Amino acid sequence: MNAAESRSGPRRPGGKKGKQTTVAGIVIAVVIGGYTLLRPSINEATGWNLPALPGKQVAKDSVAENSPSPVSDQTANPRSVPKPAESSKSSPSRGEAKTQPQRNETAKSPGPLASKMTRGDPDSRADSASAQATQDTSDLKYGLLREIGTDRFMSPAGVLYTPGSAEGHRLEHLRRHTKDQPNRSGKHGVFDGEMEGALATIDKAYEKAQANQRTTKEVDGKRTIYTVDMGKRVGFVGGRDGQRSRNPMARRVRLVLEGNRLITAFPL
């Protein structure tokens, strides 16, 4: 042994090359870890589908390929290489686990217009329409007739009801044809449905008469007499004659008018 060898001591075989291998392995592990951490963000931002790396095994294989000797394998401490791979492998799953609940919470949380949107709910609109209809019909006589003057009422079809007749008003005369009078001589037509039913049936008969549908017409001075076949039951025949015949069903309506002013109406 010469003097130089005694001063510097014995050389370790492959020392410099082993250090280079260790540095290369660490660099590869860092690159792999960075790629694994950034891959979900890059995919989400660009819409790409970058493949995932197998993590720990890739790091080991890369170090093994670059290791020329057992000495360098020992120098590249296996404990230091897997750690970045483990952290890089677990980080995306934790990041995804944290990101997903935030998206769900955003989807579930109501927006600032949620309270206003309930105003457009179909049930709410239906309730409002029903309340409006109730308010509109509360001002109508029998829920149908609109008062256009003192004791003067107009139906939706345009039939006018005014004072007159022995009862004092045409409506009071019409009321007599909503109840049977078994002791009355002859026939007595009775409408179904009380006053509301009688008024609705008269409106339908008037519309048919104006359209000349299944209608016969007679003129007597200022008065026009319509007999309208309604095509269904609208009442029955009462009075003594009706009682003898067991109150047969009435399908026709007799209307007596002066212009559009009702004089009388009854089923036949």
Rank of each mutant, 00 (worst) to 15 (best):
V253L: 12
L50H: 02
R176S: 01
Q132P: 01
R251A: 08
M154C: 00
P51H: 15
T75D: 06
P70E: 09
K116Q: 11
S88K: 02
L50Y: 01
L257K: 10
R175W: 12
V23K: 10
E218Q: 13
F236T: 04
V81P: 00
G164H: 14
S62N: 10
I225S: 00
P110S: 08
S72M: 06
R146I: 04
E258A: 06
G186L: 01
G238S: 13
T178F: 01
D136Q: 08
E196L: 05
V27R: 02
S62Q: 12
R252C: 05
S245E: 15
A166Y: 11
G242V: 09
V30R: 06
R233G: 02
Q243N: 14
V23Q: 06
Q132K: 15
G149F: 03
G168Q: 14
A52S: 15
G95F: 08
G15I: 04
D151C: 05
T264R: 00
G239R: 13
D61T: 08
G34V: 12
G143C: 02
P248E: 12
G197D: 08
P182M: 04
V228Y: 03
D220M: 14
T106C: 01
A114D: 08
R176T: 07
N247A: 05
A205R: 05
G47C: 07
T264G: 00
T21A: 06
V30I: 07
D61G: 11
G149S: 05
Q135L: 12
N66I: 08
N66V: 10
R175L: 09
G231A: 01
P78L: 12
R246L: 11
V81G: 00
Y206H: 11
L174D: 03
V190A: 00
I32S: 00
L53W: 14
N77L: 09
Q210N: 14
L174C: 04
V31N: 00
A131Q: 04
A76G: 07
A97L: 06
H177A: 01
S128R: 15
P13E: 08
S87V: 10
K116L: 12
V253S: 08
S69P: 02
E258I: 07
E218V: 09
A45Q: 11
L268K: 07
Y35E: 03
P182H: 04
R261K: 14
L255F: 03
V253E: 03
E96R: 13
A97R: 09
Q102I: 13
G14C: 10
G221L: 02
G55E: 06
R261Q: 15
V23R: 13
T118H: 06
A4L: 15
S130H: 06
S165L: 12
T75N: 09
A166T: 08
Q243D: 13
Q210G: 02
D203P: 15
Q135F: 11
T162I: 09
L140A: 01
T201G: 00
N66D: 11
T106V: 14
T178E: 01
Q74E: 14
A114K: 04
H177R: 05
G33N: 05
G193A: 03
A97Q: 10
V71I: 10
T22K: 04
K89C: 02
S165P: 15
